[in-house]
Nucleic acid binder design. Sequence first.
DNA 1: TAGATATTATTAGCGACCTAATAATATCTA
DNA 2: TAGATATTATTAGGTCGCTAATAATATCTA
Lengths: 153, 153
Amino acid sequence: MNENEGIEYEKTASYLLAKVATAYRNALENHMARVHLHSGQVFVLMELWKKDGLRQVDIAERLNLRPPTINKMLTGLIDINLVTRRSIAGDKRSTRIFLTRKGWDAQRDVAAQWLELETEYMSGLSETERLVLTDLLGRLHIAYTGRPNPDDD
Amino acid sequence: MNENEGIEYEKTASYLLAKVATAYRNALENHMARVHLHSGQVFVLMELWKKDGLRQVDIAERLNLRPPTINKMLTGLIDINLVTRRSIAGDKRSTRIFLTRKGWDAQRDVAAQWLELETEYMSGLSETERLVLTDLLGRLHIAYTGRPNPDDD
DNA sequence: TAGATATTATTAGCGACCTAATAATATCTA
DNA sequence: TAGATATTATTAGGTCGCTAATAATATCTA
């Protein structure tokens, strides 16, 4: 058998990142289900809480996601009345996305779930280790996106 | 405005994990596309390279994924002739999954891409830092799955 | 042994990502 | 100003995760 081209994949950072990430996504999905949200929607809301009235393309850029992804998520958020689309005076192509009252109100519940998840998920690590992990992931993030976070104007 | 329930999500380990993870998934998808594979298929192959002839349910368990997920991935792998399904004598419910010649041969290309990706993706970190990251992710993985890897018999 | 319960694979359908393609509008340039 | 090029939103369709439901087979138990 032509074995032993065998890498020990399980010991590479990539492998572990992939595994931890999907487990984490499931956990996030479960936590956010408690407040009737899906995992992806939460990230969109975060951007709007920071700066309401963004265009879809802006949200996409800030989250490092593609416009069609955002478009679909927004449809979901509009359906559950957390967000509205309003057309822009001066550019008939684009629309601005605004939080509804309900959209603003979701902030508290999401924050609570987020912290709970963070605590739960990172419970295997000491405080110091969590900080180290945060630092390392932060640097990978910057290395890969080329920016820590989009310059708020 | 009811602002300032505001968590700085971007500084939590969870947030960074999510972000880094999707960036990584894209990178993996792109790298594996070079050898005509999708990201998820690679993980299934890894298990078969370690132990050929597993049942679908075994693969699911080892990868910490659900049976329908595996089922669909296998359909893809069968379509491109990397794998076959053979029924089991003694249990008409299950099938065993076997690598084809082409499936075994893919091992080399995947390993090459994997290492390239690992190098590229982790290039922002020193060797020591990468080891620390691996250790921390490994511990999160164990904490969440309850086992480092399934006991090979 | 008959009937209830387990297990395995599979299908259907959903969300979170993606790329490619399209339509509408803006903008730039010859 | 006309025509080429950019940009924005959107649709279609794909993979990778998931849950719920189903059918077939095994196994357990009364």
